[in-house]
Design a protein around this nucleic acid. Structure first.
Lengths: 154, 154
DNA sequence: TAAACTGATACTATATTAGTATCAATTAAA
DNA sequence: TTTAATTGATACTAATATAGTATCAGTTTA
């Protein structure tokens, strides 16, 4: 059972990079290189995020992608929805012809309840929060700083 | 994003049928027919559940599958683990070579937290609970009884 | 001994996920 | 004004997971 697929995962990394450099343009290439994301794959993800107004872009030399939005306004729930689709509940356990009152489907009911819990939890996890956590983590133990430190705290 | 795949879904239905007739043998064929589950598919699921000691079987004429366990001791979490594998957290966001302290991976941390929430919630959902809910539902509104009523409350 | 069963396992089909490639259009800078 | 660095759009391939089918051997009861 995979919670996040690669595209959601990559999208989050890219957004963290953009959030850390909010206001300036980063090229797909630089993000791909620095964060070990397949270049062409990343480009598709970035374009998808533009369509959803999470980021903006500028074409041509010195162009790239930029975050304009408040990073706290972008939640993992949104990204999951964009890249993995809405959480799907399995079909009514009873034959459709007979059971047209889906609300009564007990399993469905349970899953929907849990789905809501998950959604609420992932909603709390925003790009802004992740970025702050990351910055704290990098400060607390600078001796084992990772490659991201240079990128996110230049 | 699919929470339950067909095999988990079918497995739950089959277990509900077995729990409702606890102590007696039901053939894969009868379960498949009554619950609209592809026969050969179901057989594989039943065998898998035997391997995990959730049910027992008897070969030959009048044979079939039986639930011996307490239905409250079988949770949806267990079934998800059997049929969909343990909840997988996406890899560390930072390069493995550099970041060997995975605990610091902020996203990973968040996902693990949420994963635990999901696991706890699905643990509360046992076959026993589902069966009781189902029986209540069938009693409360008998006028729109579904096909399961005959099976589960004969 | 025949029919109703499970055990085991191999196979096919479909869908999803992951990743690659290409070409046109745009823009900054040489 | 040309070139190189960039995005936009989209088509393609590969790998993996999910869903479903088929088959044959062995067991048991009538």
């Amino acid at each position: 059972m995979k919670v996040l697929t690669k595209n959601t995962d990559y999208a989050i990394r890219a957004l963290l990079a953009l959030a850390a450099k909010k206001g300036s343009y980063l090229s797909a290439k630089s993000i791909a290189t620095e964060h070990d994301i397949p270049y062409q794959f990343l480009r598709r993800l970035l374009q998808e995020m533009i369509r959803h107004n999470l980021i903006v872009s500028k074409e041509g030399v010195q162009g790239g992608f930029m975050m304009e939005k408040d990073p706290d306004a972008i939640s993992v729930t949104q990204l999951i929805e964009i890249f993995q689709g809405k959480v799907q509940v399995s079909e009514c356990m009873f034959r459709k012809q007979i059971c047209n009152n889906r609300a009564r489907c007990v399993l469905r009911h349970e899953i929907m309840r849990i789905e809501q819990v998950v959604q609420r939890e992932f909603e709390k996890v925003t790009i802004g929060k992740l970025l702050r956590d990351l910055q704290v983590a990098n400060k607390v133990e600078p001796q084992s700083a990772n490659i991201e430190q240079a990128v996110l705290n230049p």
